[in-house]
Design a protein around this nucleic acid. Structure first.
Lengths: 144, 144
DNA sequence: GCAAGATGTAATAATAAAAGTTACAACAAA
DNA sequence: TTTGTTGTAACTTTTATTATTACATCTTGC
C-alpha cells in the first residue's frame, strides 16, 4: 500500500507557484502541469489553505504562499494533505479476540512501536523544505 | 492513506504461533484470534513462507518459524506482506507534463528525497524484532 | 450592471486495492 | 478411507483515491 499522490501533487503545486511567481497561478495551469483535473488541484489548495500554508484569491485567482519556503517542511505539506488529524500510518486490524490472551494484548504491544516508526518517518519529512525543491528545480531549468 | 492491516495481522500470527507453541497452530485458530477469515490468514502465511520466515505443514496443519524470534525484524515482516518487490512508499502522480519545466523535473527532484524518507522508516522497522513482542506479550499474560 | 474568468464545492462515476467469503482440490496422518 | 488441514481460484464487499461534470459564488474591468 502506498501514500497517496496528493502529497507529491501538493509539492508540485508549490513548485509551480514559486517557479512562475511572475504570473497569476490558476488551478487550470497547475492541473495541466501535473496532468490531472483542476478540481483535484482546487481540493488540495483548500487543504493547504486550511493548514495555513497558502492563501487563495477567490474570484480573481492566484495563490500566495504565507511564509518563506525554507520554513515549510515536507511534513507540513504531508500533514496538510495526507491525513485526518492524528491519523496513524499503520492500519490496525480492528477486531482482535478479547478472549484470546494474544488478541487481548497485541494492540498494547504494537501501538507504541508503530507510533515510533511513524515518528521516524515524520522526523525525516521535517528535515526537508520547499526551499530545497526550489533550489534543485532551478538548477535543472538552468541546464537547458 | 494507511499501510494495510496485513502487517499487524502477520505480527499477531507470529505472536500466536509462539505463545501457543505447545499446540498445533491452524489458520482457523489464528483467524479467530485476529477476528478475520481463515483464508486471509492462509494468504498471509503464504507470503511469510515465500519470504522464508516460516514453514507451513500442508495437510496436517501447523507452522514452524524458521529462525529465532530475535532475528526476525518488523522490516522482514513488513517486506514479506506489505509490498511488491521494490515498491515505493510514496505514490507519485504519473503524468506530469513534460513540456512544463516543473513537470519535467519534479520527479528527479523528489525521488531521492522520498526514498530517503522511506529508508528512515525501514531503518526504524529493522530495529524491532518479534522477540520484543514475545517478551511484552508474556509480561501482559503474566499479570493476569 | 454585467460579462469574463476565477474559485468553492456538491454529486457522482471510475478505478484500484484491501478484506472477506465460498468452494473445492490436494494433501497427510490416523 | 475418513478427518482435518492447507492451497488457491473466483467472486463479492468495502473503502479510498482520483477524475469528472455542473453550477453557485466571487472579483475585476468595462
Amino acid at each position: 500500500m502506498q501514500i497517496s499522490s496528493r502529497f507529491t501533487m501538493a509539492i508540485h503545486m508549490f513548485a509551480c507557484i514559486d517557479t512562475f511567481s511572475d504570473q497569476k497561478m490558476t488551478s487550470d495551469f497547475m492541473a495541466a502541469s501535473i496532468g490531472t483535473n483542476p478540481v483535484i488541484v482546487r481540493k488540495i489548495l483548500q487543504q493547504l489553505k486550511a493548514a495555513g500554508l497558502i492563501e487563495v484569491a477567490r474570484g480573481t485567482g492566484g495563490v500566495t504562499i504565507t511564509r518563506p519556503l525554507d520554513r515549510i517542511t515536507f511534513l507540513d505539506v504531508y500533514k496538510a494533505v495526507e491525513c485526518a488529524p492524528d491519523e496513524e500510518l499503520f492500519h490496525f486490524h480492528e477486531k482482535p479476540n478479547q478472549r484470546c490472551p494474544v488478541g487481548k494484548n497485541i494492540h498494547h504491544v504494537l501501538d507504541k512501536r508503530l507510533l515510533e516508526v511513524q515518528r521516524a518517518m515524520e522526523a525525516k519529512l521535517s528535515e526537508m523544505t520547499l526551499a530545497d525543491v526550489k533550489k534543485e528545480i532551478a538548477v535543472y531549468i538552468e541546464k537547458e
